[in-house]
Design a protein around this nucleic acid. Structure first.
Lengths: 205, 205, 205, 205
DNA sequence: CCATAAGCGAGACGGTACGTCTAGTCTTATC
DNA sequence: GATAAGACTAGACGTACCGTCTCGCTTATGG
């Protein structure tokens, strides 16, 4: 007898049930593959299921439709966003930007626009906020806070504004079909930082 | 009846319309209506044709598919973008922003993300660039040039950067589902302008 | 310009592409083929459409589901049931029987049981009655009436009973999986006729 | 309680049931209930299992699929068919008929057509013959044999024909959706009997 | 000034994918 | 070791639109 003991190899405190193949992972992986190859428009649940070697039922059991599936797959595919700590605000920000801008075919700034139209429910938008925007915002907060602690910028710098200034133009560039080059990144960041720096004259706006 | 002539696609030598009803306009109007009511996702060519009182054939005779139809409808619905001329860069920019930010349910920053996923061909993207982004860029150019002429900012200010700094955060805000308020607009613009201002010292880029 | 004139090459008043009548026939033919080959259980609308070279839509446009389709296909496949007229009741009945009993793989007595379970609505059952049972009943009526006119049987013979006696055992045989042979048919008909014949003693029942 | 042993599938040396509930009976009972309520078409194994408070596994462990389950359930639900013995062929036959004709929602003449389509295997058809038709045939044989012994009919009367004449029209009536009334039964039986009666002496009933 | 052909509304056509349902198999944990 | 529970693969269901195509009608020139 074959003495199936897949449970042994598993993490101790993890989930209760588990079938032969890890269907969920296979589906998510297939989703990302097809997303890369064919784009969102041509991604069909049937193709996902087929590539995952799963039944459509297995997909629909977990996600109500294609959009939440894609959102989830994207969310999980995002590498953990660590706030860089180079000791210099500008370097930190460049690092952050490149992480997202250069990094990913699947960066949310690139793919989310595609999906946004289909985010019907508030639930889903909330998920997107939580999974995508919050980590970015948090990373910016960390970086900015460190810079403030170092005295690079004034303590009351508006992180939210910095956030929009950092990622907004990036997203917009993609939207326009004109991906930013390194120099553009560098200059945009300069501008963003300038707004956060201590003012010589002390006055604001 | 006033024999309305369709705004576009009317070559000079072409012979004039034959039927009483202006099918083309009806279709575009129906498209915009459905876009407003149901969004891009739930816009179907059949619904457009039905609402326009036209046959699907009449739609497909003019536009190869749903996406170009929507792009065209959006393009024509955009009000002419006039570069404001208040005598002050900041005021000009705020005026520009508000025009687009507050103005339209159908502003391209709001709707384009929806469509981007489907902009398969370069042709279509080119059209989008020509119809949507170019007028904005031109308006910014005008405003910035006037400011430079007034000496508000240095003559070699990078208009492209300014453009991204102006509209990027706006689009990003919509993407995030957090529409910008007046104060945010004001502060973002301050930051954008700062990057264009003449530098006293000449430190940093 | 290419001067499209496909109509010229066509049969006089006939169709061009593949007219609705064509599709309908193709679908019905495919239905009967699959019914013969695979039986009702394994007949799927998808297979029918595929074999007919039609889209599923084309099937569902005409029939709400599989059962009415099958009923219709069977109904149309039934050859026109002509009441035989041999000048002899017994010969007429044998002819009638064989027509149905021997004739058809698709005789309704053979296939209807299969479908009966799915005849949910009264509408459909009414259709079945009209298409299948009524012609048989009518044929029996004709045959019996002629025999009565000839004086072979009494004038008030109950055609309804004769009908059940003729076709009931036939259907039952098929149900039992024991198709009747010629001799059995002959003997069953003898019995049926006996009940219709004039009684020597003049009494009835 | 009496620890009911399931009627079938209980080999002698098998050891007795372990769990408290009699799963097998529960499943069969649920099958019959759903058959009565919803009909064969809408009977699903899942519904059966649910109503029986059993797992689908428990069903499939015993019956290979839905059809054998239904056949089995029907077979067991049939009351023992006892050949009536009134001392008169006609009365015996009427009794027999009514037993089946009037009696059962679940009479096989009524339900078998439904199932026939699915009796793929010969095994199953053999089971049906053994469980349903053979008892009927046997009962007719008994009744006819007694009548022959009494001299009511000739000794070589064909029981098989009598069988078909008795139950065929009954089944056919159901098929047609026109259940027979008492008078019809009476008259059909008269006809059937006539065919079995001794012919030499002519008439008389 | 009538004939003709272009454009029209209508809607069926072959397709693709949807999201649902049920079948029958298989796995797990419980008792 | 059989149970209840329920996830699994498989595949048909009936629906909604896609983009194409034919049909007759209408209409406005252009021969």
């Amino acid at each position: 007898m074959t003495q199936r003991t897949p449970a042994v190899a598993r993490a101790p405190g993890r989930r209760s049930r588990r079938t032969s193949g890890d269907v969920e992972e296979a589906i998510l992986a297939a989703t990302l593959e097809i997303l890369d190859e064919a784009g969102f428009k041509d991604l069909t649940v049937e193709a996902v299921a087929a590539r995952a070697g799963a039944a459509k039922t297995a997909v629909y059991r977990r996600w109500p439709s294609k959009v939440p599936l894609v959102v989830d797959a994207l969310a999980r595919s995002q590498p953990a966003l660590v706030a860089p700590d180079t000791g210099d605000l500008r370097s930190d920000m460049i690092a952050l930007w490149k992480d997202l801008a250069i990094g990913g075919q699947r960066s949310i700034e690139r793919l989310l626009p595609v999906v946004t139209a289909y985010l019907g429910t508030d639930d889903l938008m909330a998920l997107v906020r939580e999974r995508f925007f919050e980590p970015r915002l948090q990373a910016v907060r960390t970086v900015v806070a460190r810079a403030a602690a170092r005295g690079e910028i004034r303590a009351d710098a508006d992180t939210g504004l910095a956030f929009d200034l950092l990622f907004g133009p990036l997203a917009y560039r993609w939207l326009r079909g004109v991906p930013p080059d390194d120099d553009t990144i560098s200059r945009l960041i300069s501008m963003a930082i300038e707004g956060l720096q201590p003012r010589d004259d002390g006055a604001s706006t």
